[in-house]
Amino acid sequence: MKELDIVGLTNEVFSEEFEVPAGDLSPQAHIFNDLGLDSLDVVDLIVALQKKFGVQVRNDERVREVRTLQDLYDYLGQIRDEQL
């Protein structure tokens, strides 16, 4: 499980669920300001990530600190180490 392609799978979620063009998925992209998600989307993002990675993150306070894609990759890396 350590071999999970966190970047690839996370980017898949943004492409499939939120129709974000692949070219926009740079690590420094801000999830709200650059990728166009809003508060409603974040709920769906969490559900999609839970399904994609088989983890539970909805009630984790740390997920609220995520702002950029890199933040998200880093956070999912921590979750991978803790839950998988």
Partner: peptide, 15 residues
């Protein structure tokens, strides 16, 4: 279907 199989409200999206 999701709720009855998983029993987990955490799998519901806002939409």
């Amino acid at each position: 279907s999701e709720l009855l199989s998983s029993g987990d409200f955490g799998m519901f999206g806002s939409s």
